[in-house]
Simulated scan of single mutants.
Amino acid sequence: MNEASVPEPSTDQITKHALLAIAVGGLTAGTLDILQACILFGWDIPLSITAGLLGRKALQGGPGNYILGLLLHFFITFTFAAFYYASSRKLLFLKDHPLVCGLAYGAAVELVMQLIVLPLSALHATGPHDLHDLIQGLLVHMVVVGLPISYSLRRFAK
C-alpha cells in the first residue's frame, strides 16, 4: 500500500487527537508540577496560587481557596499544553524532537512564570532569586512540565 492511498484524517479526528494531546499533556504536567511543589514547599501551595489572583487574603485558607488554586494551576498547564500544540502545527520540529523541545519548553514555561505571570499577579512576586532556586525551577519545569507536554503531543497528535 503506497502513501497516496492512505486517507487523510478528518477534521473531527484531528480535533479529537489535538484535544487528547492537550488533555494528557496538561493533566500530566499539572499533576507532576503540583505534587513536586507541594512536596518541596508544603501542601498550601494551591493557596499561594489563589493569592496570585485574589491577593494575600487568600492565604488564610479555606476549601474554596484551595480548590480555586488547583483549578487555576491546571488552567495554566492546559494553556501551556494548548500553546505547545498550536505552535507545533507550524513548527514541525516540536513534534519530531520531543526530548530537546520538551526540555527547552519547560525552561521557557519557568521563565514566563517567573518573569511575566508572577510579577503581574496580585502578589507582585519578583526577585531577587537565589541561583539555587532559579536552577531548581528551570530543571524541575524542564522535566515535569516540558517533557509530559512534548511527549503527549508526539504520542497523540496527528
Rank of each mutant, 00 (worst) to 15 (best):
G102F: 09
M1L: 06
T11C: 09
F80L: 10
M1T: 06
G55P: 12
Y151A: 04
Q36G: 02
L115E: 05
G26H: 07
S121K: 03
G146W: 14
F74W: 14
E3L: 13
Y85L: 03
A125I: 12
E110V: 02
L115Q: 09
T50V: 10
D44H: 07
I34L: 08
L27H: 00
F80Q: 03
L134G: 09
P9I: 07
G137N: 09
A37D: 03
H97F: 13
P46C: 08
A58H: 10
I135M: 06
L71A: 14
Y105Q: 05
G127M: 08
G146F: 15
I49W: 12
I116T: 09
G106N: 13
D130I: 01
D130F: 15
L20I: 08
K90H: 14
Q136L: 14
Q36W: 14
L94F: 15
E8L: 09
C38T: 11
H129R: 08
L59K: 00
D133W: 05
Y151V: 02
F75G: 13
G146E: 07
I149G: 04
D96A: 11
G61F: 14
V100S: 13
P46Y: 13
S87K: 00
L91T: 06
V144D: 07
M113G: 05
T15C: 07
A18C: 01
F78H: 11
A29Q: 04
G106A: 09
W43E: 07
L32N: 02
F74C: 03
M1I: 01
L68G: 02
F41E: 02
G69M: 10
L138D: 11
G64F: 06
I116N: 08
R89L: 15
D44A: 06
G106R: 03
L47N: 07
K158L: 12
K90W: 15
L118F: 14
S152H: 02
F41T: 01
A29H: 04
S121M: 04
H97R: 00
T31M: 09
P9F: 15
I49M: 12
M1S: 15
Q60T: 03
V24H: 14
D133Y: 12
F80A: 06
F75W: 09
V24K: 08
A4N: 13
E3R: 08
H129Q: 04
A29N: 06
F74D: 08
L153R: 00
L27V: 06
A82Q: 09
L120C: 10
T126K: 05
H17L: 00
L40N: 09
L94A: 03
Y85T: 00
A104C: 14
L139N: 03
L118G: 07
L153H: 11
P119W: 07
G64P: 01
L111K: 00
G25N: 00
I39A: 12
A81E: 06
H17K: 04
F75N: 01
A108Y: 12
H124F: 12
H17Y: 11
